[in-house]
């Protein structure tokens, strides 16, 4: 049964991708991209990849279509001009060559889903058997993410921080109204969205509450710092969309967001440095407390908090940077 769903979802994915190649309008492409995200999240669910499905859901529904919509709002919904024949031939050739190389790659692959493939027999069994004893949390993905390969996650948080710095650097200069200053121009939106604002007032607290649930539920079920940060940020973005940029800038001022992003990374980094100062290798939590297993719990809890703060504040800062380009205020 599971295989059937898996095959149908994958063929829907390919259909969406083909539709994306053919479709012309930009908003239609954005909608198809969000459909693509939905389908890949469902595929990850059938594959048993719980945390990945959660992240894809939060990112694919909450953030990436919105960023695309903001860009299209700034640049206008121009259709794409049809491209010349020469470019088509060149790209088809390149695609065929890479495709052939990929197919050569798949020839000697171990069959899909076989429990004795090398991937499942060399390093992975250690995590499944030992993480219960050594780290003591049920969600093995979180224990691998936050303890065995914590350095990867630190690199990951830095990637998000770099993206925030990069977007602010690129967009801050062009908006002659600095992102720091509050924007007093109200959006001339004609009829206020009373219905949307009322429902927003009801739903947004639940979104933020759910973000905190996901943050602290990371050890026992799907969830963790990334997902919580993205959900929190989409709650803030929803608030910004409904009540206008100036109001949300008063609630969470942009400079505070930039400082919070740096603090989040520092929380993560300094936990590692603390274990460094105690003589243990970097990011080794077992020295943070006397009993190693509780020390792992403390370590994972703190770094997940650092990740959550960084991701939430960076995505909000990116939203501010984009929204600043958009306000047709009295410029």
């Amino acid at each position: 049964m599971e295989v059937l769903i898996d095959i149908v979802l994958l063929s829907l994915l390919v259909a969406t991708a083909v539709a994306l190649v053919m479709v012309r309008g930009l908003i239609a492409s954005i909608m198809l991209t969000s459909v693509y995200g939905l389908l890949s999240a469902s595929f990850f669910v059938t594959m048993g990849a719980v945390d990945v499905a959660f992240t894809e859901a939060a990112v694919g529904a909450g953030v990436s279509p919105l960023l695309l919509l903001f860009t299209v709002a700034v640049i206008g919904r121009k259709e794409r001009a049809p491209e010349g024949g020469a470019v088509l031939v060149k790209s088809l050739l390149l695609v065929v060559v890479t495709g052939a190389l990929l197919i050569v790659g798949t020839l000697d692959m171990p069959p899909f889903g076989s429990p004795d493939a090398p991937a499942q027999t060399h390093v992975a069994p250690y995590y499944l058997q030992q993480s219960g004893a050594e780290i003591g949390i049920p969600n093995v993905v979180t224990s691998v993410l936050a303890s065995y390969r914590a350095y990867d996650t630190l690199g990951e948080v830095l990637v998000i921080f770099t993206a925030g710095v990069a977007v602010i650097l690129i967009l801050a200069s062009s908006s002659h109204r600095g992102s720091a200053r509050l924007r007093n121009a109200t959006v001339p939106d004609g009829s206020p969205h009373t219905i949307l604002q009322v429902v927003g007032k009801i739903l947004i607290p639940f979104i933020l509450l759910f973000a905190f649930y996901v943050q602290f539920h990371g050890e026992y079920g799907p969830g963790g710092g990334f997902q919580a940060g993205v959900i929190f940020a989409s709650g803030v973005i929803l608030y910004g969309l409904l009540f206008g940029l100036p109001t949300v800038c008063r609630v969470l001022p942009p400079p505070v967001m930039e400082v919070l992003a740096a603090l989040g990374v520092l929380i993560f980094g300094l936990t590692g440095v603390m274990s460094l100062l105690n003589g243990a290798p970097f990011l080794d939590y077992s020295v943070l407390a006397d009993d190693p297993v509780t020390a792992q719990h403390i370590g994972i809890m703190v770094i997940e908090l650092g990740v959550g703060i960084t991701v939430a504040s960076v995505i909000t800062a990116i939203y501010y940077a984009f929204a600043n380009q958009l306000e047709p205020g009295p410029n």
Partner: peptide, 17 residues
């Protein structure tokens, strides 16, 4: 296998960045 899930969590965030 939990390891690819950890790698893809990182890769998704790299993609959105």
């Amino acid at each position: 296998n939990p390891l690819p899930h950890v790698l893809i969590l990182t890769a998704i965030v790299v993609g959105i960045a």
